[in-house]
Design a protein around this nucleic acid. Sequence first.
DNA 1: GCATGTGAATTCATTCACAGCT
DNA 2: AGCTGTGAATGAATTCACATGC
Lengths: 216, 216
Amino acid sequence: MRITGKRISESTIHRLSLYFRSLGILEKEGYVTVSSKDLAQREKLTPAQVRKDLSFFGQFGTRGLGYPVVELRQQIAEILGINRKWNVALIGIGNVGSALVSFKEFIRQGFIIKLIFDNDQRKIGSFNKGIEVHDVTNLRQMLNKHNIELVIIAVPASVAQRIVDEVVDAGVKALLSFAPTNLRVPSNVTMRTVNMAIEMEHLSFHLTNENLYYTA
Amino acid sequence: MRITGKRISESTIHRLSLYFRSLGILEKEGYVTVSSKDLAQREKLTPAQVRKDLSFFGQFGTRGLGYPVVELRQQIAEILGINRKWNVALIGIGNVGSALVSFKEFIRQGFIIKLIFDNDQRKIGSFNKGIEVHDVTNLRQMLNKHNIELVIIAVPASVAQRIVDEVVDAGVKALLSFAPTNLRVPSNVTMRTVNMAIEMEHLSFHLTNENLYYTA
DNA sequence: GCATGTGAATTCATTCACAGCT
DNA sequence: AGCTGTGAATGAATTCACATGC
């Protein structure tokens, strides 16, 4: 990766994911090159935005021609760190957890759920899509033993912080949480939260305040 | 609501949701007032940010004292439009859909799933948490008949755009999509997308590029 | 004294516009 | 001619700092 001195914003990372998906489609459609203009159109962005985002990481295009579809896709995969497999553990195999285990996109992208944990004795020992459910009390040693690098938290809000602390303690540096509560992690750990209630509130806000510009 | 002439950003709306949650906890903990400093600390924001966000909608605090917890929470509920019930339809009762039906937070917040749709004959007519699964071919008339204001899309990517078009056609102005694909809606319709693969890619990016500041 | 509310200042993100290469 | 790559300009979001009121 190119050394740049620039700070990469979260929105740039997000857009790289979008480009990655569009490039996959373009590849299937047989395109060899794509211009920033085309790519921007597909994602409802500006061409300048696309070029700027990519420029943080290097020079991938050819002036007058555009970007090579297959190669750029591979480069973005490298930047995003999805040109490899990641060992993932899922904690909590309730409704959300079960849905995640079946989420094919995860596997396709190299996020391999190696371990499932729960605290429900009826679930422990059972199998879910071929993966055994383990007792959450063995969390720390199991995470280390299986070199888990990424943990998905799908437990009730009431126990989420305790689980997060254990996971962080085990040395895991990346967490995805579905618990609808505020969780704390040290600054050297990345946590992302998916909160569906908050998404719904965005929608109800927009429905309630149809005109976003309030007149003075 | 106060008429302001200011544009409300998506991030402000997001933070209002966070404040709403923190105020709920503060209320349970018995707090009567809260300062912007306290609220900011709980959400890892700055006090100025909290005050600015609230100032877009009115003056809710008392100088020298802070904000009244119960009242401010109620005010934010009004702003977000969650001081009422919304009629919701869920389209697609696969893994994700099933998880959503069981998501208690939705009910608690007033998002009432009135209708479920699917195209699988084995599912149509069955009940899920007391809600009947309907044939998706009757989508439009059913949405209108039951005054559905908000639709959750939990169908495979391949059919998502077609379903979205029908939903928009039925006059629905707010959609939450879980389909991992780019969907288009007219500009007078709000759509939010939850893409778990993209969340995972953020994490793998951070794991891969531990030091976000690249040296020149 | 304490904490809000808000213009002004600053920081961060996006877009412009054009030099440079194919 | 066409399109990238990138400093400069613009625009948006956040933070500062202080006047205002309890």
